[in-house]
């Protein structure tokens, strides 16, 4: 068991040297007759923050859902840490533990307290004992500034507080990669800030993140690179300074102007 663990860790290190943490390779996807992806390629290195932008319906949410297999791709492959996770026989529940996801509509478990929202996965998926899970949950909630709210139910929390619980819930699983799908777009601007602060701290801590957001400030300060998705393809990709100041494609400039004015 331990020997196997060490082996795995060695493999991981070796992989890490050559492989990006996330590699999306020639992914195609359609819903019925609607072709959403026509060959998407994207690589995110360990510790990097990739911001995904694109018009409504361009498939940003779908791409995130494909990464943790909430949606299955038609063609191509997705690798996490060198492992081909889109294989039919890959362990989906294990993959999902390694990939945390934060949703636009937050989706807290309505019948559970903030703490219980975090402990559910720890107990049922990671097999933590009761007090162990509780301690871990309290630590995660403290990290997102919610020490006082551990016993509150979702309906008793503000939108910003709820979304921070959502982040704590995902982080408690010790994911390698975090997916954020417009985490602040359902929130009032004042409430967004607390969420963005938590995300910025996560960036500083070196978390690898794939973030769908139209928050200009976050994209400029935190992103290592921005990907502009449209028409089922990556239209342009580059560091924020270049993409914002000197986009290569006319279409990219138009789009960024349309959302950032």
């Amino acid at each position: 068991m331990t020997a196997q663990r060490t082996d795995e860790r060695d493999n991981e290190r070796r992989r890490a040297e050559h492989e990006p943490l996330l590699r999306i390779e020639n992914v195609w996807k359609s819903f019925g007759t609607e072709q959403v992806f026509r060959g998407i390629d994207l690589e995110v290195d360990r510790g990097d923050v990739e911001v995904l932008v694109g018009p409504s319906g361009s498939g940003k949410s779908t791409l995130l859902r494909c990464v943790n297999r909430l949606t299955e791709i038609d063609e191509g492959a997705i690798y996490l840490d060198g492992e081909r996770v889109t294989d039919a026989d890959a362990n989906v529940n294990e993959l999902r533990q390694q990939v945390g996801m934060v949703f636009q509509d937050i989706n807290l478990f309505a019948h559970l307290t903030a703490r219980e929202n975090v402990t559910l996965g720890l107990r049922r998926v990671r097999g933590f004992g009761k007090s162990e899970a509780r301690d871990r949950a309290d630590r995660e909630l403290a990290n997102v500034g919610l020490s006082d709210q551990v016993d509150s139910y979702p309906a008793q929390l503000s939108g910003g507080q709820k979304q921070r619980v959502g982040i704590a819930r995902a982080l408690a699983m010790d994911p390698k990669l975090m997916l954020f799908d417009e985490p602040t777009s359902a929130l009032d601007p004042e409430l967004s800030n607390s969420v963005l602060e938590v995300m910025e701290r996560l960036v500083e801590a070196g978390m690898t993140m794939l973030v769908v957001t139209h928050e200009m400030r976050f994209a400029r300060s935190a992103a290592d690179s921005i990907t502009f998705l449209e028409g089922g393809q990556v239209v342009e990709r580059g560091p924020p300074e270049r993409l914002f100041e000197r986009p290569e494609r006319e279409r990219t400039r138009e789009f960024l102007e349309s959302i950032y004015g």
């Binding site: 943790n68 529940n93 999902r96 989706n107 309505a110």
Partner: peptide, 24 residues
């Protein structure tokens, strides 16, 4: 009347569909 997003969220932390239904 229970938002399907909650089941998605349950699956996103690694619970199976059945566990999501059972616990959430």
């Amino acid at each position: 009347s229970v938002d399907r997003g909650q089941l998605t969220a349950a699956r996103s932390v690694g619970l199976s569909q059945l566990e999501g239904l059972r616990f959430v």
